[in-house]
Design a protein around this nucleic acid. Structure first.
Lengths: 346, 346
DNA sequence: TTGAAAGCGCTAACAG
DNA sequence: CTGTTAGCGCTTTCAA
C-alpha cells in the first residue's frame, strides 16, 4: 500500500507537507500551489488511500468502542438478516458499553477464511450465525483469537444460544395432527445444518405417534418461489387423495406454497404450518394467515450479545449455552394445539 | 481507555510482558504463572480492551482495504435495508478493489452526530440513505471529511442516485385510470422527505388529468399493520360508493391493505398499486399479487457504489447525479398501462 | 513556505 | 524468565 512517505519521496518533499495537503489544511499552512498540485497528482497517480488504522490510532478515536462482528452467511438467509440485526440493535440500546456492530458476510464452508476470527486485530468478539457442518468442524479444531458466540448451533468449547429443533418439529406435527390431519407432506430446502434435519425427523416421528403419516417432498429452493413451485408440483402430481397437511421449512416457502395451493382451486386447502423465521407481520397478513412454530430470532440475538458480554468480561468461568423457547402460534392456516402444555411434547 | 502500559505500571512490570501474556503467548515465552495471574487479574479489574486500531496498524492488516460506510436510518425502513445491502454486495463482487462495507445506523434529523462523516479517521467514504430534510440541510451547510453519495436525495455539491418521484406517482395514476378507476384513495405513511410528497402530488395531478379523482387518507403507520388498519378504517367509514382505486406509499402498506379489504368481503375489490420498495417475491405471491411502480433499489445501490468509486478516484471533475428508471409492473391488483411509452407520462 | 521530531498503542526481534 | 528498542502510518507541535 502506498503511504504519504512514498508520495513525499516521489515528489521530493517531506511527509509532513503531504499530510497537510491531503488533510485539506494547505491554505491555513500556506503551502504553495505548485507543491499542492504535485502532491495531489502523485497521490492520484499512485492510488493513495489513507490508512484508517493509523488515522484512528493517531486521532485516538474509537479507542473506547468494542467492535463486534456479526458473521452472516450470504445465501438465501440474507433476507432474514434484518430480524437478527434488529435484535442486536435493541440489546445494544440497553447496554452501557459503546459497541460497534459490523456485519461480516461469509460463504458457508469457508468460515476458515474469515480473518477476523483468527486474528485479534480486526474485532474484539464475534457472533457466528448460520454455520454449516463444515464450519462447525473448523471451529471445533481451531482455537480462535477472539471470544465467540454461536447462534443456533452447538460446538464443544463454544458459547451458544439455541432453540430446541426437535421440539419445533414436534410442535408442528402436533398442531397438524390435533386438527385431524392424517396425510402430511414436508416441503423444505436442502438442509444446510443438522438442525434442519432434526426438525423434519422429529416432525415425522411425532406425527406418526399421533396418526399423521407424512413424507418428505423433494427439496425445493428456500424461497417463496421455491415453495410455490414445490407445492404446485406436489399437488399436481397427486392422483388420488390430496395431503391434508403441509409442513414448510420456512415461512417464505410457506407463503409461496399457500399461493400455489390457492391457484389450484382445491376443494379443500390443506392445513399449513411453517417454521416461523420470517417477519411475523407478513405471516399475519397472508391469505390465509400463516400458523408457525415461531423462531424467536430477535430474542436469540439479544441473548447472543448478552452471553458474549458475559464471556468477554470473564463473568463466565466456562462456555455456556442458553436455550430459548420456540412457541407454536396458531393462525388461520392451522388451528391450535389441543394440549396447552406444549413443552411436554416430543 | 486502559492500555497495556497502565496494566504494566499497575503490576510493576514491562508493557512487553503484558502484551505477551494477553496475546496468549505466555507459555512459549515462559512467563511465570504468578506474573500471568497478576496480569490477567489487573486486566480484568481495569476492564482492559485492546485498541483495535493499534493492533491493525501494527499487524499491517486491513491497510489495503477501503472502508465504506452505508448510513441507514433506523426507522420503519430497516426492513428494506437488505435489498440495498444486497445490491451493494453484488456490485462489490464485480469490483477489483478490496472494500469493507460497514452499516452505520443513524437516527433521522441527527445525521450531524455521525462522527464517521465529519472525521476522516473512521471510513474512506460513505453512502447516505434515507436522509431527512433536516439531514439534507446539515449536509448542505457542512463540508464533510470524506466523499459521499446520496441515495434517492439531491443536495447541491453532492453526488446522488435518484429515481423520478414525480414519474412514479404519475405512473401509478395512469395505471389506475387506464383501468377505468374514477375514485381513488392514497394511503401512505407520514412523509419523511420531500420526495414522498412529490409522489403523492404527482399522483393526484396525473389522476385528475385522466378522470381519477383521488384524496389522501390520514397518514397510517408505514407497516403492513398500518396499511391493514388504514384500509379498514377507510372502507368502514365509507357510506356511499366505495373508492375503486387505492395507491399505497409502500408495498408493505399495500399488503396489509389487501388483507383488510379482503376481510371486509366487498362486492368488488378496488384496484391497488403501490410503490414497490419491498421484496418483489412477496409482491408476486400475495393474494391478489401486487401491481407496483417498482423502485429499482438494488440497481440504485450498485450505481451509488460505482459513482462513489468514480468520485473517489477523481474520475469525476464535479459531483454527478444519475437517474434510474422506475417501471410500472402490472400484476393482479391492477392491469397494465395502455400507453406503452410510459416515459412520456407526467 | 517547509521540515524534524514526537508519539498514539501495540508487538516482534533481540538482549540480557 | 523479563526488559529495551524500534517501528507500523499518520498528524501535530514547534522550529527554521
Amino acid at each position: 500500500m502506498v503511504t504519504i512517505k512514498q508520495i513525499a519521496a516521489e515528489v521530493g518533499i517531506s511527509a509532513t507537507t503531504v499530510s497537510i495537503v491531503l488533510g485539506g489544511k494547505a491554505e491555513e499552512r500556506k503551502i504553495s500551489a505548485a507543491t499542492q498540485k504535485k502532491i495531489f497528482e502523485t497521490a492520484n497517480r499512485l492510488g493513495y488511500q489513507p490508512n484508517i488504522a493509523a488515522r484512528s490510532l493517531r486521532a485516538g478515536f474509537g479507542a473506547d468502542e468494542i467492535r463486534v462482528a456479526m458473521l452472516w452467511a450470504e445465501d438465501f438467509r440474507a433476507s432474514m438478516m434484518v430480524r437478527f440485526w434488529d435484535g442486536l440493535r435493541a440489546e445494544l440500546a440497553q447496554l452501557d458499553r459503546k459497541i460497534r456492530l459490523v456485519i461480516y458476510p461469509y460463504t458457508n464452508d469457508h468460515l476458515d477464511e474469515v480473518h477476523a476470527l483468527t486474528s485479534a486485530s480486526d474485532c474484539h468478539a464475534a457472533i457466528i450465525c448460520n454455520a454449516s457442518d463444515a464450519d462447525l468442524e473448523f471451529l471445533r479444531r481451531t482455537q480462535l483469537a477472539i471470544p465467540v458466540v454461536l447462534y443456533n448451533r452447538t460446538c464443544p468449547g463454544y458459547c451458544s444460544v439455541n432453540v430446541d429443533d426437535a421440539l419445533m418439529g414436534a410442535l408442528a406435527a402436533r398442531a397438524l395432527s390435533d386438527q385431524g390431519c392424517r396425510r402430511g407432506v414436508v416441503l423444505t430446502g436442502a438442509p444446510v445444518f443438522a438442525g434442519m434435519e432434526v426438525r423434519v425427523q422429529s416432525f415425522l416421528l411425532e406425527g406418526a405417534r399421533h396418526g399423521l403419516e407424512a413424507r418428505v417432498a423433494p427439496y425445493c429452493d428456500s424461497s417463496a418461489r421455491g415453495g410455490y413451485e414445490g407445492a404446485r408440483a406436489l399437488w399436481s402430481a397427486e392422483s388420488g387423495e390430496y395431503p391434508d397437511a403441509l409442513f414448510c421449512g420456512s415461512s417464505l416457502i410457506a407463503h409461496g406454497a399457500l399461493r400455489a395451493l390457492r391457484e389450484l382451486g382445491l376443494p379443500q386447502l390443506p392445513r399449513v404450518v411453517a417454521i416461523g423465521n420470517g417477519a411475523p407481520e407478513l405471516d399475519e397478513l397472508s391469505v390465509p394467515s400463516l400458523s408457525v412454530v415461531y423462531l424467536p430470532m430477535e430474542e436469540m440475538a439479544r441473548e447472543c450479545l448478552r452471553l458474549l458480554m458475559d464471556w468477554m468480561s470473564d463473568r463466565l468461568s466456562s462456555p455456556a449455552s442458553r436455550l430459548l423457547e420456540a412457541r407454536y402460534i396458531p393462525r388461520e392456516s392451522c388451528g391450535p394445539i389441543a394440549d396447552q402444555e406444549q413443552k411436554t411434547i416430543g
